[in-house]
Design a protein around this nucleic acid. Structure first.
Lengths: 188, 188
DNA sequence: CAATGACTAGTCAGAACTGACTATTCATGA
DNA sequence: TCATGAATAGTCAGTTCTGACTAGTCATTG
């Protein structure tokens, strides 16, 4: 859905072939979507069937033929529609990284601390990478701004958690209280 | 990967059958992972093959037979391993909602404003829902704390963007400058 | 009581996605 | 000059995931 929005959005700026689209996304937008090459080709084909883009096969020398995609007026309409929907709604981001937090208390406190410090370093590193890239080659400044904001927020939260852990203010449940939580609180 | 961590983590607290696991996740952890029923069954089956859990089929009356899963020592080891990896690493969360931001400048300013205000309301609503649930029935306080922090941060960022939009401080690129950005900056 | 709708439990065909691959061209330097 | 590796371009077999379904049970109520 938003993958299509992305492809359409890129195609608005001029015709392109699949490899080019995928490559651009990989290089510049990998931080906000992950679209594999095969998936990109699949979506483009499907959008061609829907009449959102036209395909034109070209060949240079003995290279495999390129399929060049170009936005149609219907494609532009679909883009507008998808964009409106996308902007108006909000879906909270989901990370696999969250899950582990549910179980920190399964580890010795000291180890939890060590591991979360590693995580903190990882976040800091990603943030630094973003701040290093000066005005980012691809444009899309809002996206980058958002990502930086997000990473800073993660960092702040992790710092707060680490502080609580260090000061022992983080409750490590014992197994029995855990069990009762899971089964549901109703029975006393 | 983290889906398995989650299932193992829940199974540590006592044997359960597939439906129960899925149901618990749906009710209490839907905000941080989305694991469909069929996927849960698939993963459990696979974990059984790997020897991480044992299965015991039981039947009550004419109901379809239940498969009750119980963690094995190997399962506990795997859990520990996955948990350590999970805690030590960080993978930035990805949302489809981000993509649209790349193209706000394709809409008239006033409409972009209206749509993003809708989005803001959606975020605020989700946040309110979290704050309403008092100490959340399922426990997992860290997760909830994290989610609230995340939502507050999104809200703040959106507010900043909206302010910039209202004051006209947000650059709406014209098509030609967009194009040159896409093709790459190298050629002048 | 019988009909209705919600809950429990799980299955499966098919949609969606991806890792690994082929095959050509181009740049590099030993 | 001719291996080596990177870049270009795309395909496909196989895995992963999910929407929609079956089917029994329970609670309610008209």
């Amino acid at each position: 859905m938003e993958r299509e929005l992305l492809l359409l959005g890129l195609l608005r700026q001029g015709e392109m072939h699949g490899y080019q689209l995928h490559d651009f996304i990989e290089r510049n937008l990998a931080f906000c979507t992950d679209l594999k090459k095969a998936t990109a080709y699949l979506l483009l084909e499907r959008m061609a069937e829907k009449g959102w883009v036209t395909v034109q096969e070209t060949r240079e020398g003995h290279r495999p033929p390129r399929r060049v995609y170009r936005l149609t007026p219907e494609g532009e309409a679909a883009f507008q529609q998808l964009l409106r929907e996308n902007l108006a709604h909000f879906e909270a981001a989901k990370t696999g990284s969250d899950v582990g937090l549910a179980f920190v208390d399964a580890l010795p406190r000291a180890e939890a601390l060590r591991l979360l410090e590693q995580r903190r370093a990882a976040v800091a590193e990603q943030l630094a990478a973003f701040q290093a890239a000066p005005e980012h080659s691809g444009g899309y400044q809002l996206l980058i701004d958002h990502q930086q904001h997000y990473l800073r927020s993660e960092l702040a939260w992790l710092d707060a958690v680490l502080a609580r852990l260090r000061e022992g203010r983080l409750r490590f449940a014992n197994p029995s209280s855990r069990k009762s939580r899971l089964q549901g609180e109703e029975r006393p």
